[in-house]
Design a protein around this nucleic acid. Structure first.
Lengths: 84, 84
DNA sequence: TTTTTAGTTCGATAACTATCGAACTAAAAG
DNA sequence: CTTTTAGTTCGATAGTTATCGAACTAAAAA
């Protein structure tokens, strides 16, 4: 159920969509600006997505780059990303 | 997102589970007794499940029989039911 | 060493969703 | 006709989750 909960929220879906459509890693800041959400809220959602294995984090100094964990989508929701 | 929302709740998942595991239609009352939930709450969840196409309703007089709409599960969540 | 940058955590609050019982509708049974 | 049965709707409330800004940490840049 954790994955469904993670996907059952507007802003988390928007984050997934932007990650998928730009096809690259993005930072907290970048996503916050793009979607007009405060950085603390973005941080909160990033954590939720990471905890259920929908995203990966790569850290360089204080910057964290987020990307989709495609394997998780393929495993539990095959074809879903293509519908975004 | 509607389907994810429907699946992101404990009692709705329990309803789906019981429908799947008993492999037959069930009534509101029956589910309520089995899961110890008031009939108004069961009615509320039945509606939510039906609205997103996860279940079917067959009505005989005042009794409504609920069953899983397998096509929806197969389409969006192949393999999910088997994990219940 | 001071300032800037990126992100986290916390506390308060807003927004949303689930829950119940009571009052209701409609149909079957007595 | 009256009572029982199955489910719906409503209003109130509890419970949960999302949101923000402020205070914080850690690292890079100046």
């Amino acid at each position: 159920m954790a994955i469904f909960k993670a996907l059952a929220e507007q802003n988390r879906l928007r984050i997934i969509r932007v990650l998928y459509q730009t096809s690259r890693e993005m930072t907290c800041n970048e996503v916050g600006e793009q979607l007009n959400i405060s950085k603390s809220t973005v941080s909160y959602h990033f954590k939720a997505l990471r905890l259920v294995g929908l995203t990966n984090t790569r850290q360089v100094a204080q910057t964290k780059y987020l990307s989709l964990q495609l394997a998780t989508f393929d495993r539990y929701l095959p074809g879903f990303l293509a519908t975004l």
